[in-house]
């Protein structure tokens, strides 16, 4: 008898593992990665490669030499951070800036807290915001992308940046939209300036649908962000369409889709309960729109997610799911 296992129930396990979930996230990001490489060419590939390689190597090195804990790179979460960080950076970012971003993301935001599952803030976003504050020139300067096969995206600043600047100079939203020829189809299918993660809303949405179908994530956080953005910007736009951009523009531009589908839904840094998740999403939508409309930066999704990350422990404390037989 001694050769047989004896341990408590359950004796079987569902097929999903941390690694399989991370692979699903990577697969979901693949369409957007492919589109961005097509449009931004070798520069984008370089940013992706440096970001992924440095994130994985850093995590390996830190677990081995600093923490002296079992290595965790096999769970693929460092790769996910690497891809997400790269997608938040312009294709023209120099390699050493990417490396600094990775050091902040993995080294500071993830491993100082003890690695996967312990970090209060989304590591890729911490990396991005650090770079945005430290190297604003690289982070907001969008040179004409040289796509593979001669495909060219529009040059210049992102639509959000253009409109913020234009409004400050006294122009109106309608004039700016017409002047720059922005259209919703462009935003959906990839043609506007921005970082890799901003280029094609449609490719990102395809990945989001994949994650929903595979039940990797639940939709409530994303939908509550979208709902808040639509309602808030809808009201503002109806009040004054000359000063405030419309809801669809706000959903499709900047990091809104990437942030709401892939960053705000990060397991570790989002609330556990459905109620908590909805409040979390509403907070992100509101803060992002307040920054876009009234803040100094044209884009506010990253800040909004990081700010709401801080509320997660409280939301987890206050909101629990409904228990059986307890009113």
């Amino acid at each position: 008898m001694s050769k047989y296992l004896v341990s408590p129930s359950p004796h079987v396990h569902a097929p999903a593992s941390t690694k399989s979930l991370m692979i699903d996230v990577l697969l979901a990001l693949l369409p957007a990665v492919i589109v961005s490489v097509i449009f931004y060419g070798w520069g984008e590939l370089m940013v992706l490669a440096v970001s992924i390689a440095s994130c994985v190597l850093l995590e390996w090195a830190i677990t081995k030499w600093l923490l002296k804990k079992p290595c965790t790179i096999a769970d693929h979460s460092a790769i996910v951070t690497g891809v997400l960080l790269a997608m938040n950076l312009p294709a023209t970012t120099p390699w050493w800036v990417v490396l600094i971003g990775a050091i902040v993301a993995i080294g500071v935001a993830k491993m100082t807290f003890g690695g996967i599952g312990q970090n209060p803030f989304n590591p890729a976003l911490v990396g991005r915001v650090f770079l945005l504050l430290s190297f604003p020139t690289y982070m907001t300067h969008w040179e004409a992308p040289k796509g593979l096969w001669g495909l060219d995206a529009t040059t210049g600043a992102t639509p959000l940046g253009v409109i913020k600047e234009g409004l400050m100079q006294g122009s109106t939203v309608q004039d700016l939209m017409a002047e720059h020829g922005y259209s919703y189809s462009q935003m959906l299918f990839a043609n506007l300036g921005g970082s890799a993660g901003e280029i094609s809303a449609l490719a990102l949405l395809a990945g989001f649908v994949y994650l929903l179908c595979r039940r990797v994530i639940k939709p409530h956080i994303t939908f509550s962000i979208w709902g808040t953005v639509i309602v808030f910007s809808g009201i503002m736009w109806l009040i004054d369409p000359a000063q405030f951009t419309d809801p669809i523009f706000n959903l499709l531009t900047g990091g809104m889709i990437l942030g709401s589908c892939f960053m705000a839904t990060d397991y570790v840094t989002s609330p556990m309960s459905a109620k908590g998740g909805i409040i979390f999403g509403v907070g992100i939508g509101l803060i992002a729109m307040l920054i876009r409309y009234f803040g100094a930066y044209p884009e506010g999704v990253s800040f909004a997610i990081l700010i709401m990350n801080m509320t997660v422990p409280l939301l987890n404390k206050w909101f629990h799911q409904k228990k059986y037989g307890r009113a």
Binding site: L5, S7, H11, V12, H13, A16, S17, T18, L21, T72, D75, S77, G114, G115, I116, G117, Q118, Y267, V268, M272, S273, H320, Q321, K322, K323, Y324, G325, R326
Partner: peptide, 27 residues
Amino acid sequence: AKATKRAEASACIRCGRCADACPMGLE
């Protein structure tokens, strides 16, 4: 062994699947 052997435990990633699965609504 393939069906029953426990894989090595790793860190909680706070995915909330245990709470979604619990038929008593516990966490």
